[in-house]
Design a protein around this nucleic acid. Structure first.
Lengths: 121, 121
DNA sequence: TAGCCTACATACCATTAGTATACTATTGTT
DNA sequence: AACAATAGTATACTAATGGTATGTAGGCTA
């Protein structure tokens, strides 16, 4: 349930890729993780508008697709860290390019770009 | 109706971009158009499994977002040609990289990649 | 000890994306 | 007259995606 595009396994590389990084939040999450190891709460604060349920769901899908790893520290309060796998990291240059494109388009339309949020801690 | 992601206008470039090129078919269609001017039927034959309704819908969305242009020739039988705009063409290198990534992953998993179809004419 | 925090899980519901199938218009060909 | 070709429309439907609300565990804080 909740899997973006799980239908017929892709034979086209573009299709294959978009089945994994399409969806409303995946690009932004991967992009944010490109910055380094992040905790659940950090991601949630950086991805404006995402609900905890969606975040959990999306993170699990990315984990299932081996784009990120999830490390649980059994402390109290619990701590869960997410980081890109090699495969996931290999996507960052592509997302970088897409971001650059997006930035240019936004400028073109007079929209002010705000890459990612989150107040320091 | 049918607009993929029309919710709050993106402030993040990555979000902005994925709102335009996300969805099941957009990446593949743009990629195919990267090859040059294409007719409706050519696109339909190249994107396996797409229904005419979806294709029309997606093409209209790409047109609205100024990623492609649509040229109608009032002949019989009708002829409609689609081509990338400058903005759309600027996306091709990113899709190229994503495709390369996808290809590598597919190889890694023993899947045979089949970039795009369509028999010559 | 009553709530608060983190990091979720679960149930339920609404919206949106996508599918299936059939149909249209126009003109030339058989 | 029936059929082919192209580029779609129309209608009805299912599946995927996303959202709200609430629950849970264990320690921490007031």
């Amino acid at each position: 349930m909740g899997k973006i595009n799980q239908a017929p396994p892709a034979t086209c590389p573009v299709d294959y890729a978009f089945q994994r990084i399409g969806g409303k939040y995946k690009g932004r999450i991967l992009w944010f993780l490109g910055d380094g190891v992040k905790r659940y709460g950090q991601i949630r604060r950086s991805i404006s508008g995402i609900t905890p349920k969606m975040l959990t769901q999306v993170l699990r899908e990315l984990e299932d697709d081996r784009l990120i790893t999830r490390t649980v520290y059994y402390e109290v309060p619990p701590r869960v860290e997410y980081t890109l796998t090699e495969t996931g990291r290999a996507l960052i240059p592509s997302i970088q390019m897409i971001s650059t494109w997006g930035q240019a388009q936004m400028q073109h339309q007079g929209i002010t770009a705000m890459p990612l949020e989150e107040g320091e801690e």
